[in-house]
Design a protein around this nucleic acid. Structure first.
Length: 577
DNA sequence: GCCGTTTTCGGCCCGACTGTTTTCAGTCG
């Protein structure tokens, strides 16, 4: 009965598609905006409605009276008569069919009318039997394209985790830069904004010979299909399934094009609206007053022309950054080189792959000054979690390593820590006397993910109240694409963190990215400190830290908000050690 | 259907690419 935000957003998207089939103007866009507004909410729609009724629903971006009434019906009854009626008239699997490349609402409707295609299975049959080819508007190529799109749609249509695809994207950037005649080549789009997941990737190129760029791009070894190849724009699908686009733009428009293709769409729309209000025009070719070019060679120039501070890509979501940039009051967000240490790492003492010495070596190479060893505790038997005795033994090994660093006059220091399990009742997996002897105590949930919200929240809060506890690791427990966050009242957790001085972690492991950017924002607002940790289980994992920093930047965190930007002495003082 | 320092009407981003179009529709980003 209880209906979630994603479900409501999906229904609104479906309604948009149905309206588009009928050729209705503007409404589809309105429903899609509302769906976006719902999907981006940090709170359950049902809770919003419960607290403030219709009025509160209308406060959601893109939701007006008519859509608020529909949401009310959905929340109250779990159904929507208007939607049921649309669906009955054209009973097709919209979500499935629209994942097929080249199929939008109009063609889905057409195929339903002509061939009674309702889902991917029907479509496959229709294409195989050659019924699609020859229909008005569908030729040989269309049939081929749909057949190929089908294979892909059946498998996925999913989003990609940033940290998983970034190495390949960086490689493509290098390749593009090495093409003869290329002056500039840059990753744009959501991956430049460092969103935790991306749907596709965009590159922008300035080149004297665009054709060469297109040839090189479409012939890269990891390209599985060329979706389009033109003079200024090409699109390919990689073997991984990721779609990558490249555009060649004139040098004089590089900044405005980069801005345009970096997005977000919402940020760009706000900029464009601002331009229009001043009687200017902004597009991917530049900022114009009539025929006069005002700016656009670089992004810096563009923002300056608006009288704004430069807005870092990670902040471009139209969540208030534009007003702050206009006022010259953008926060000085943390930079990619600002971390001095890492406060969550695992070693071969439990489920890590490397010895403490090897991990420390990698941390030093990553430019860090300290690293906490935080192996699991005994409750996680499958990782050979540490009990009090083994923890003490591990402490000796760390003392010896630190003594060696001191002798070598190395600045590096290993901190004794733990990732102590929070048990079902909120008590901890190690006795207080063991925790008291450590430099840094992290706690986390690894079991009983399905407790009811109140119980889960109270469990976590109880652990935070233990005076030995410094950090709550991966606070919501989500694994992107695999497991949702456990049901926990994060507002209450953040409030408790403020009260107890508990640090909330931004776990940088790409599939965790936990806290999310929205929660980082709330912590910044609440004055709750955070740490950015790699959760490294191997020497190569310190590279994840940059994704954690990105998440912090997307949440507008400054160095002061992140405790492992502090030099060691200041950190130890903060931890009360 | 939404929204508002052009506010209760009249706008709403629009350019590129593809296929099959004889001048443009559909899709995508």
């Amino acid at each position: 009965m209880k209906i979630g935000n994603q479900e409501i957003a999906r229904i609104l998207e479906d309604i948009a598609d149905y309206l588009e089939m009928q050729g209705v103007a503007w409404k589809p866009a309105a429903y899609r905006r509302a769906a976006g507004g719902i999907a981006g909410l940090n709170q359950e729609v049902a809770a919003v409605y419960g607290a403030g009724g219709l009025k509160a629903l209308m406060g959601v971006p893109g939701v007006g009276e008519a859509i608020a009434l529909k949401i009310e019906e959905l929340v109250k009854t779990g159904r929507l008569k208007y939607y049921d009626k649309l669906r009955k008239a054209v009973p097709v699997d919209l979500a499935g069919l629209s994942r097929v490349e080249g199929l939008g609402p109009k063609r889905i409707y057409f195929l339903y009318k002509k061939l009674k295609v309702k889902n991917l299975k029907d479509l496959e049959r229709a294409v195989r039997s050659g019924k699609v080819q020859g229909l008005k508007g569908f030729g040989e190529k269309s049939g081929e394209r749909i057949a190929k799109g089908l294979d892909f749609a059946k498998g996925s249509g999913k989003r990609f985790i940033l940290g998983h695809v970034m190495p390949e994207l960086e490689e493509i950037e290098r390749r593009l830069r090495s093409v003869k005649g290329v002056k500039k080549a840059t990753l744009a789009g959501s991956s430049r904004r460092m969103k935790e997941t991306i749907g596709d990737a965009d590159f922008l190129v300035v080149a004297s010979d665009p054709e060469k760029v297109m040839d090189a791009f479409t012939k890269m070894p990891d390209v599985s299909r060329v979706l389009a190849k033109g003079d200024t724009k090409s699109m390919v699908r990689l073997a991984s399934g990721l779609q990558v686009d490249v555009r060649v733009v004139p040098d004089g428009s590089y900044g405005s094009a980069l801005n345009y293709f970096t997005g977000s769409k919402e940020h760009n729309v706000a900029l464009r609206t601002m331009a229009e209000k001043r009687g200017w025009k902004l597009n991917e070719y530049g900022l114009w007053r009539g025929d006069k070019f005002l700016a656009g060679r670089t992004e810096e120039e563009l923002y300056k022309a608006f009288g704004m501070e430069y807005v870092p890509p990670e902040m471009r979501e139209n969540r208030g950054e534009i007003d702050l940039a206009l006022a010259g009051k953008l926060p000085d967000i943390i930079g990619y080189g600002d971390l001095k240490g890492d406060l969550q790492t695992q070693s071969e003492w439990t489920d890590g792959e490397a010895s403490i010495a090897e991990m420390a070596g990698a941390a030093i190479r990553a430019g860090l000054e300290y690293m906490a060893v935080t192996d699991h505790t005994k409750r996680l038997a499958m990782t050979h979690g540490l009990d009090e005795k083994r923890l003490a033994k591990q402490g000796k090994e760390i003392d010896e390593l630190n003594a060696k660093y001191r002798k070598q006059h190395a600045k590096f220091r290993i901190l004794k820590g733990t990732e102590c399990d929070i048990l079902k009742d909120g008590s901890l997996d190690l006795p207080d006397r063991a925790l008291a002897g450590l430099d840094v105590v992290g706690v986390s949930v690894h079991s009983h993910f399905d407790l009811p919200r109140r119980e889960q929240t109270e469990r976590i809060i109880k652990a935070m109240k233990n005076p030995n506890v410094d950090i709550l690791f991966h606070p919501t427990g989500r694994l992107i694409g695999k497991r949702p966050a456990y049901d926990v009242d994060m507002r209450a957790v953040i409030a408790e963190a403020k009260r107890t001085g508990t640090v909330l972690e931004i776990d940088a492991l790409p599939e965790r990215a936990d806290l999310s950017d929205e929660y980082v924002r709330e912590c910044v607002r609440a004055g709750v400190k955070m740490s950015i940790d790699s959760d490294a289980h191997a020497a190569g994992h310190f590279g994840f830290l940059k994704y954690g920093i990105a998440q912090a930047r997307r949440g507008w965190a400054t160095r002061a908000d992140i405790i492992n930007t502090y030099p060691l002495a200041k950190l130890l003082k903060f931890l009360g050690r």
